[in-house]
């Protein structure tokens, strides 16, 4: 599998999954799946021309810099990599991005965010994980907070979410927490996906021209 242009090979032709099946399984329409293929093709051929998205290609698309590692972008990449083989294929790309569609159910967004924040995959979000994430955010931003302020933020948030007080946030507690704090899911909706066929119309236009 190489990096042929989409005028020669669309998502159907290169065996990246049937757009109709992907559309029926996700929040995307068939046209939107085909438009996403344009974006996918560009990303997956930007450095290593094997038609798969490698982490450095993901970083390049996110930050215009293939060497720029970021704690949270790493987490997103790892969760997109559903097969856990170190690369993202087109099906994984579409199925994972679908969670970020403004039309995707809140329950999907809630569950995905839980997995993002369950850093060690224990089935719980632990206080140490929350602290680690706050410190990572501070590290990447210009925000400078003292240790005691960080502790206060972490403690306060954790105590709100950990309603049974067992020292860890389980999926049910997380659901209740995000209901009361919708800002916690702010990063889970991507308005761009609403207009994806406008942003990447070329495949659809070529596809219709070939029909």
């Amino acid at each position: 599998m190489g990096c042929a242009s989409s005028s020669q090979f669309g998502p159907r032709a290169v065996g990246h999954g049937d757009p109709a099946v992907l559309a029926s399984d996700t929040s995307f329409t068939v046209n939107e799946v085909e438009a996403l293929y344009e974006l996918y093709r560009r990303m997956s051929c930007s450095i290593i021309k094997d038609g798969l998205i490698h982490k450095e290609e993901f970083q390049l698309a996110m930050f215009r810099n293939s060497k720029k590692a970021n704690f949270f972008a790493d987490r997103v990449f790892d969760l997109f990599d559903l097969k856990r083989n170190g690369v993202i294929d087109f099906e994984e790309f579409v199925r994972s991005l679908s969670v970020f569609h403004p039309r995707a159910p809140t329950s999907e967004k809630t569950a995905f965010a839980f997995k993002l924040y369950d850093l060690r995959g224990t089935g719980y979000i632990e206080k140490e994980e929350l602290r680690e994430m706050v410190l990572a955010l501070l590290d990447e931003s210009d925000l400078c907070l003292s240790d005691s302020v960080v502790e206060a933020i972490v403690d306060n948030t954790f105590n709100q979410a950990d309603s049974n007080g067992d020292g860890k946030i389980d999926p049910e507690e997380w659901k209740e927490f995000v209901k009361k704090n919708p800002a916690a899911l702010r990063n889970m909706s991507l308005p761009y996906l609403q207009d994806i066929t406008l942003a990447f119309p070329s495949f659809i236009m070529r596809s219709e021209a070939n029909d």
């Binding site: 974006l39 990303m43 698309a61 996110m62 930050f63 970021n70 704690f71 949270f72 972008a73 790493d74 987490r75 997103v76 991005l97 970020f100 924040y117 929350l130 994430m133 706050v134 990572a136 955010l137 990447e140 931003s141 907070l145 302020v149 206060a152 933020i153 972490v154 306060n156 948030t157 954790f158 979410a161 927490f177 704090n181 800002a183 916690a184 899911l185 702010r186 990063n187 889970m188 991507l190 308005p191 761009y192 994806i196 942003a199």
Partner: peptide, 25 residues
């Protein structure tokens, strides 16, 4: 006030979650 800050809302501001960057040409 730190007590009123939500750690998850803070985290959600990370550039690492800004998937909109993927759509910038």
């Amino acid at each position: 006030k730190p007590e009123s800050m939500n750690a998850f809302a803070l985290i959600s501001r990370s550039q690492g979650f800004n998937l909109g960057n993927l759509f910038e040409k």
